[in-house]
Design a protein around this nucleic acid. Sequence first.
DNA 1: TCATATTTGTGAAATTTGTAACGAATGAAA
DNA 2: TTTCATTCGTTACAAATTTCACAAATATGA
Lengths: 205, 205
Amino acid sequence: MTHISRKTIARVFLYIRTLDTLIRQKRNLISSKELARIVGVTDAQIRKDISNFARIGRPGIGYNTQELKDTLEEFVLQHNCVKLVLFGVGNLGTAILQYPGFQKNKIKIIAAFEKKEEKIGSVINGVRVYAAKDAPRIIAQKKADIGIIAVPERASQEVADMLVLSGLKGIVNFAPTTIAVPRNVMVKDIDFSIEFLSLFCNACM
Amino acid sequence: MTHISRKTIARVFLYIRTLDTLIRQKRNLISSKELARIVGVTDAQIRKDISNFARIGRPGIGYNTQELKDTLEEFVLQHNCVKLVLFGVGNLGTAILQYPGFQKNKIKIIAAFEKKEEKIGSVINGVRVYAAKDAPRIIAQKKADIGIIAVPERASQEVADMLVLSGLKGIVNFAPTTIAVPRNVMVKDIDFSIEFLSLFCNACM
DNA sequence: TCATATTTGTGAAATTTGTAACGAATGAAA
DNA sequence: TTTCATTCGTTACAAATTTCACAAATATGA
Ligand SMILES: NC(=O)c1ccc[n+]([C@@H]2O[C@H](COP(=O)([O-])OP(=O)(O)OC[C@H]3O[C@@H](n4cnc5c(N)ncnc54)[C@H](O)[C@@H]3O)[C@@H](O)[C@H]2O)c1
Ligand SMILES: NC(=O)c1ccc[n+]([C@@H]2O[C@H](COP(=O)([O-])OP(=O)(O)OC[C@H]3O[C@@H](n4cnc5c(N)ncnc54)[C@H](O)[C@@H]3O)[C@@H](O)[C@H]2O)c1
């Protein structure tokens, strides 16, 4: 399989999400044109993205929703479940832990870590909160894939260093600061402030 | 001023965020090379981005941090403050309301809207929670810029329609579903599941 | 003063990303 | 059967974005 770009992969998950909904609605077939209208990209884009993985569309007909979803999912996830660990059980961290929508999407938060004594030992929505210092051991033991940083800005680099040492290959960083990590560790920054400001700027100018 | 791409604008806010930190550290000068190292892009990229707005770098020296920050901010915000309204005071919505980091960043949440009776009338972190039906009036009155959707998936389209009718020009959508809006309304989707899955896929393959 | 070391700003080149177009495949209907 | 309207997969093209590379500007120190 040739190299697939990050952007394509993100779109594929968008297609999968939409196909899920269509399948729940008992919809069996969909054309690239209609799928494009729903997710807001061009039909050519969709056909091109799909052609990276398979040739399962039927000219004149379209794609079978279930078959397309299964095929895309097979390529991007290979039956894996993503195992996440969360750092920082504060406002945002708790919201993430409470969210029930992850399980069904092949996503599982397997442990949370905190600094504050009073939160350690509690269980939120089935996820146990451990002391931050136990993280390396538990991450290795449970073979976590990705770490989520939801600690205050000042602690984010220290947590990132620990996540890297624990062998994680990816970090989602909600703290409003850039973290330094080795090149082989992938970081996705999600800074709400920047998202709001960028959108405002794009929308108003 | 020629057209500036979305990507450039997002990076500019990243530069501003970083310059803020440098200024707090009493740092007066910075080269494109060092700024690049900190934010994780190339130095040429930084110089090119900045050159969209101004020529305030000094060869052999670099940029004055305060002057650069002020200049960039002037162009992307023009002394505006972004006024947000939030829909859905649940787990995520409450975390956003509680967050104290917005104010100082030219961001202000001016109202929240809920469906559940028991939350209406309460005040969270200085923001009043109104009944959803009052939204159009309050949005117009207070001249909100951007709407945040933090309601369940099934309600997201209905809320989006209301936001569009109220005249908002931008929507940040946290619900895991695509919303349909007129072309002149900008939407930024933030789907945590897709972010986690995409990162996993990029990191592991 | 002059050579040297930095660092900017920018046009050109390279790369990445998205779009358009079209032959071939498919089914429906006359 | 033949025609027509769809729709896919792919290739060629276009647009957007990033990187390169270098002249010009500035400072430093001999
Ligand atoms: N809440 C939001 O809507 C929001 C918006 C934008 C950005 N953020 C960012 O997300 C991060 C979390 O935000 P929040 O609102 O949940 O903050 P919060 O203060 O409510 O929670 C942070 C938690 O992290 C814990 N913590 C501190 N150091 C730690 C460590 N070394 N290891 C483990 N846990 C540690 C704290 O005890 C606290 O419980 C922050 O960086 C914040 O800037 C949050
Ligand atoms: N919490 C997370 O970490 C997380 C993660 C991924 C996605 N999301 C998405 O973000 C959205 C919010 O998530 P949450 O965890 O806060 O959910 P939640 O159920 O805790 O909160 C949703 C709130 O919206 C209110 N609501 C429902 N219909 C409304 C309407 N028409 N107008 C105003 N308010 C209305 C509900 O009463 C509830 O208080 C959901 O779409 C969810 O899928 C959340």
